[in-house]
Nucleic acid binder design. Sequence first.
DNA 1: TAGATATCGAACAAAGCGTTTTGTAACATA
DNA 2: TATGTTACAAAACGCTTTGTTCGATATCTA
Lengths: 180, 180
Amino acid sequence: MDRRQQKTKQAIFGAFSRLLERKSFGNITVQEIIDEANVGRSTFYAHFETKDELLREMCTDIFEHVFSDDLRQESNHDFSHSDYDFEKEITHILYHLQSSKKHLKGLFACESGELFMNYLKGYLTEMFSGYIEKEPHQAPTEYLLHMMVCSFTETVRYWIAEDKKYTPEELTTYFMEYIR
Amino acid sequence: MDRRQQKTKQAIFGAFSRLLERKSFGNITVQEIIDEANVGRSTFYAHFETKDELLREMCTDIFEHVFSDDLRQESNHDFSHSDYDFEKEITHILYHLQSSKKHLKGLFACESGELFMNYLKGYLTEMFSGYIEKEPHQAPTEYLLHMMVCSFTETVRYWIAEDKKYTPEELTTYFMEYIR
DNA sequence: TAGATATCGAACAAAGCGTTTTGTAACATA
DNA sequence: TATGTTACAAAACGCTTTGTTCGATATCTA
């Protein structure tokens, strides 16, 4: 890929990410993005059809980067016999997320987070479904799965948004204690 | 208040709510709202300065309606000795929410939900803080509070979004089981 | 009924969007 | 190093949406 294209794309991603930290997605204009990124108008549209497309692409980029090696394992998650494996996987994911913290902050902070969140939730739903049903419960499995997935994304949100200084291991402990 | 104003405001609230069920807040135009509500352009702007203002006003309306009697109690929530009271309060809130289901669906369904969610979370944070610290725990209290609040809003979202046919009592049971 | 006021409808400027064009600079390659 | 290719900046464009204004009309209140 052309060096110029890389630079432009990175400039736009960076600018967009920075803007997302202080404004909601809906209130950010293309003009602001290209001003912040210092690229021409036509250049922006050469790379992205729309603002939504930019968001989508940034999300997939990050998601694929964060979960690339996990996805390669063909995600055969079966935690039915081992709490330890489950915890290890959680910590593993948190490490990945930590390394992408810079861009994630904007994505988790505001309304636009929905999109990346949905990627994450899709992945987690599959992963967590192996962990459920270990103990008998009244609530529908579907409900518990939904709640566990949301609890995890909210844990991450709590962690990222306020720059909480916990290690992935600490956070895993807290999370496991919460969902018991 | 003038009967015409009431009718107009209700027409706009209704139209907006219906649109929110099928489109995200950012993609709804004022034109669509006034077409759906069947009111003139100038009329809309006579009532609301902007689209965001409409959202804000609808949220406060619903929130105040749902929690009006609870708020009057000066919210002296102290559940330190009684799980029963806590459960009763939860069920109570769910009943209120159920009665406003129509408008809430749009607010919970999409990106715009953030605003109403934040009202709700503010209220719940105060309420839940009395329930925490009953058992010793490793995780920071702040974290647990955040998680409990989010768990509740997610429970409601799960309930509303998919028109799950649980009674407030059933849902309370599930929620209490989850947060234990 | 009379006076007040909410609404309608149309027209308007301003801002944002997405496209197109032209000239220039950075690139890959031979 | 020379050459063709590609990405970029800048400006102009038509279009959509926004938010305002104004006079005419319908509907309220008292």
